[in-house]
Amino acid sequence: MLQCKHAQEFSFGPRALKDALISTNPALQELYAKAFSRAEKLFLSEAYNPQRTLFCTLLIRTAFDWLLSHPDAPEDFETFYHAMLRRKQSYCRKHIYLQPIGKASSLSHLERNRREGGPKNTTGSCVESFFLGLRVKCLPSIPISSIHCCYRHSQDSDRVQLHADGILNFLKNNKPMDALCVLGLTLLDLYPCETWSFTFSKFLPGQGGTGVC
C-alpha cells in the first residue's frame, strides 16, 4: 500500500517557466510575438511572474496523487509543437462536433441548444473560446445501445463502464464530412482495457479526429 507523504510543491523558476511556455527557439518566439495580442501576452506572462496571484503553486498532497503514481516525462511547448501532428482547419473541415452519448440530464442542454441552432451553452462556448476560429456544432444525443461497444461492471461500485475503443470506432465511422474532429461526451465511466479500472478520456491519434471523455 502506498504511504501518504507530506505535501510537496511543484514549482519552477520564472526563467524555466518562460522557456517552457514560449520556447528558446527564435522561430517559435517570433510566432508567439505575432499570434498574440498585448492583452493575451499580459495574461500569459502571469504564469512566469514570481509575484503572480492568478496561477497558484501546485501542491502534491499524497502519494495517491496522479502526478506521483503515474509519473510522466516533462514536456515543454517546443517539444509539443514539433511532436504533435496538428490537424489544420480547411474550408470543408472547420467544425468541432460534440456528440452526447446516453440519456443524461446534465447533457440535455447540448441537445436543446442543438435544436435552437447554435452552441449557446457552457460546453460549446468554452470549446469555441479555447479553439479560436473554429465553430462548434452539437449532434443529436444517441443511446448507448446504438454504439454496440463492449461494457462491464465496475469492480468498486458495480456501475456500468463503457469500453472507450468501441465509442471511438463509432465516432470515426460516423464523423460528418465537414468535421475537423468529433468529441463524444458521456456521464458513464470509461475504461481503455481490462487491466485498467477506468480512464477519464481517450482519443484516436493521427487522422482519426475523434475522442471521448
Rank of each mutant, 00 (worst) to 15 (best):
L44D: 00
L2Y: 08
D156R: 04
K202D: 01
H70W: 05
N49Q: 11
S23A: 13
D165V: 01
N174E: 05
D178C: 07
N173C: 03
S45K: 09
V136G: 05
E194C: 09
R159A: 09
G117T: 06
A35V: 10
S146I: 04
Q155I: 00
K175E: 03
C150T: 03
I147R: 05
G118L: 05
S154P: 10
L67Q: 12
P74L: 04
D178S: 08
G13L: 04
A47C: 14
S69C: 04
N174I: 06
T195I: 07
H70D: 13
H95T: 13
V136T: 02
K175Y: 07
L85M: 02
Y81G: 07
F130H: 12
Y91I: 10
Y81Q: 09
L190C: 10
L98R: 05
H6Q: 13
H95I: 15
L31I: 10
Q155A: 12
D76L: 04
F55K: 09
D189G: 14
P14N: 07
M84W: 12
S125K: 04
K175I: 08
L180F: 01
V182Y: 00
F131M: 05
Q207W: 00
K175N: 09
G124Y: 02
P71N: 03
H95Q: 08
P14E: 03
H70A: 14
W196V: 06
I144Q: 14
T79D: 02
H148V: 11
K34T: 13
D76V: 04
N49G: 10
S11M: 01
D156S: 07
F43C: 13
L21D: 02
Q51M: 14
N113D: 14
A39F: 08
E30W: 04
L134Q: 02
L59A: 12
H6K: 12
K41V: 08
A27R: 11
A104F: 07
I147V: 15
Q161L: 15
C181D: 04
F36N: 05
E78S: 15
N49K: 14
A16V: 13
I60K: 08
C193T: 09
T24Q: 13
F198S: 11
R87L: 15
E9L: 05
H82E: 06
L42G: 15
R87C: 15
N25H: 10
N173G: 03
R115F: 11
H6C: 10
K120T: 06
K5V: 07
E30F: 08
R112N: 15
S157R: 10
Q8M: 11
T57W: 06
K120E: 05
K34G: 15
L204P: 00
K88F: 13
A27Q: 12
D65M: 01
L139I: 01
R152F: 01
S157P: 01
K172R: 12
L21W: 10
E111I: 00
S201Q: 03
G13M: 02
T57A: 10
R15A: 08
A39V: 11
E111M: 00
F130D: 10
R112Q: 14
P192M: 03
A33M: 00
F55T: 09
A63N: 14
G208D: 04
R115D: 04
T57E: 07
S157Y: 13
D72R: 12
L28P: 04
Q3T: 15
G118H: 07
W66C: 02
S141R: 01
S45Y: 08
S125G: 09
L85K: 03
S108L: 11
T199M: 02
A27E: 14
R52P: 02
P143Y: 08
E116M: 02
F170H: 14
N173D: 07
L171W: 06
H148E: 09
I101W: 00
